[in-house]
Design a binder for these strands. Structure first.
Length: 489
RNA sequence: GUCCCCAUGGUCUAGUGGUUAGGACACCACUCUUUCAAGGUGGUAGCACGGGUUCAACUCCCGUUGGGGACGCCA
């Protein structure tokens, strides 16, 4: 049975790179009807925290990557590692190292100054008995693996990858605080947890060589390895905080749908073949195969993610979308009072111009409250282009006609407005734009008549009055000020 | 500096010796339209370079160049 794992370290948020690795492991496991294990690699006690464990768990759940086993915590497995380290010590395959960080740092600096490659100099391998006894009394010791063989393994993606023993240093397997290091805990756990395929980022290739040596030392059969290419920033360097958001939960909070996020990540390095782009989770599981994973690092293109998110939003039913939208609007004014049916109608109008859930309020707050601000400059541009005018008497005329309307559905309102325009022998646009501006404070948005139907007759009239009394004077002042400014030059 | 990985438009990719090198994002234009989106139509743009192998190379091999990664008692 296929068994894979995701082994994040709770020293930070779940990185999108780790998220994609988790996704590929998950897809591979589900495709092969195997098991997906979650293991928390918290051997760095200082930097690990429970909060980060929660964040990781939440991130994986948000993406829909449910694990079959775990989470296992390496911090709870100290004894297991210690026993295994003892075996290697007794077999003479590892040796104690008493060097301090500072001492090593000093020696390393000197080597690097000479432009030579640094590797642990084996100082503690050649200690005299006397030195050993003294250090044993005075210092904490780490355990180093004595590298005597070259390492080689078959990567399912890259083929055979070799590394000469001269290029591998005697690496630490147990730290001076008694905790196993990553390379050691990882090997012990992957073996003990019967992991069949280790699928991880290619930044681990050099670790894999060390780990191969450990498998051999224990006489264990190593699992299969797949080293995935990295996710890159726009400059083609490994994606990191300085590029953009790298935390999965940040994408959730910015209004991405998990389905879109997962779909996008899946395609970053894997292709189902052909021209397929929008693929459901189930299809991904069905189609996933390691043979179709690429070897090239992929740039994380936020634009494409946003497009894809828009596609998913459009494909989501209004009712479902309402549920997804709730976290983004429940703290906004009057959204509760207006009720779900009202919000649903707004969703109907806004849905196709949304590519992030978080844009809902930004685009449609005026459905709930008076416009927070009026884009006077934007509107002024229309005026200059001759596409709109501010004429109080026209707005007055519109209000008067609205008051007489029995019905206020979009068709009736449209008929009414067009009729006024015709009577005045002007283009409807000259009325439509000012009304849109008066009602929403914006120059862009959904069809005017549809949004008026939702706002309702009373609210429309109320806003038109408010506009005439409060905004037009402001508008005049601002325009005049601009004129004066222009004249003074 | 040492070792390792990689190479199809700006980006994600399809392609596994014979294709007018296909799709998507982005960009541009046109269209629809009361605006913005969405939609529709069209367009710009690519096999890094040099050697082989072969009747034939984007495709296979070698090298160069370019990019990336690893060199922690971090994971």
């Amino acid at each position: 049975m296929i068994r894979v794992r995701i082994a994040p370290s709770p020293t930070g948020f779940l990185h999108v790179g780790t998220a994609r690795t988790a996704l590929y492991n998950f897809l591979f496991a589900r495709n092969k009807k195997g098991k997906f294990v979650l293991r928390i690699e918290d051997t760095d006690i200082e930097r690990s925290s429970d909060e980060m464990v929660d964040v990781i768990v939440e991130s994986l759940k948000w993406m829909g990557l449910y694990w079959d086993e775990g989470p296992y915590f390496q911090s709870e497995r100290r004894e297991i590692y210690r026993e295994h380290a003892d075996k290697l010590l007794q077999a003479g395959l590892v040796y104690p190292c008493y060097c301090t960080k500072e001492e090593i740092e000093e020696r390393r600096r000197r080597v690097i100054e000479k432009k030579r490659a640094w590797k642990y100099d084996r100082r503690c391998l050649f200690l005299t008995q006397k030195e050993k006894e003294q250090f044993e009394r005075e210092r904490a010791k780490a355990l180093r693996f004595k590298v005597e063989k070259s390492s080689s393994f078959e990567d399912l993606l890259h083929g055979r990858i070799e590394r000469s023993k001269e290029d591998i240093e005697d690496f630490v397997i147990v730290k001076s605080d008694g905790m196993a290091t990553y390379n050691f805990a990882c090997v012990a756990d992957d073996h003990l947890m019967k992991i069949t395929h280790v699928i991880r980022g290619e930044d681990h290739i050099s670790n894999t060589h060390k780990q191969i040596l450990l498998y051999e030392a224990f006489g264990w059969t190593p699992p299969e390895f797949v080293h995935l290419p990295l996710i890159l920033g726009p400059d083609r360097a490994k994606l990191s905080k300085r590029h953009s958001a790298v935390s999965v939960l940040e994408y959730r909070d910015r209004g991405f749908l998990p389905e879109a996020f997962v779909n996008f990540l899946a395609l970053l390095g894997w292709s189902p073949g052909g021209d397929r782009e929008i693929i459901s989770f189930d299809e991904m599981i069905e189609l996933f195969s390691l043979e179709r994973v690429g070897k090239r690092g992929a740039v994380f293109d936020i634009k494409k993610l946003e497009w894809m998110n828009g596609e998913y939003i459009k494909a989501t039913s209004d009712r479902e979308l309402l549920q997804r939208l709730l976290p983004f609007i429940e703290n906004k004014p009057v959204t509760k009072e207006k009720g779900q049916e009202y919000i649903l109608r707004v969703i109907g109008l806004l849905k196709e111009r949304l590519f992030l859930l978080s844009q809902f309020w930004e685009l449609g707050s005026y459905f709930f409250i008076l416009p927070e601000q009026y884009d006077i400059d934007g509107f002024a541009k229309y005026v200059r282009k001759g596409k709109a005018e501010i004429k109080e008497e026209r707005i007055g005329e519109v209000m008067k006609s609205f008051k007489n309307l029995k019905k206020f559905d979009s068709e009736t309102v449209e008929g009414c407005v067009r009729n006024i325009a015709e009577c005045m022998s002007i283009k409807p646009a000259l009325i439509i734009h000012p009304i849109r501006f008066a009602l929403t404070g914006k120059t862009v948005g959904p069809g005017l008549f549809e949004l008026m139907e939702i706002l309702g007759k009373d609210e429309c009239i109320r806003r038109l009055e408010y506009f005439v009394e409060n905004i037009i004077p402001q508008y005049r002042t601002q325009i005049n000020a601009n004129m004066l400014k222009l004249l003074s030059y």
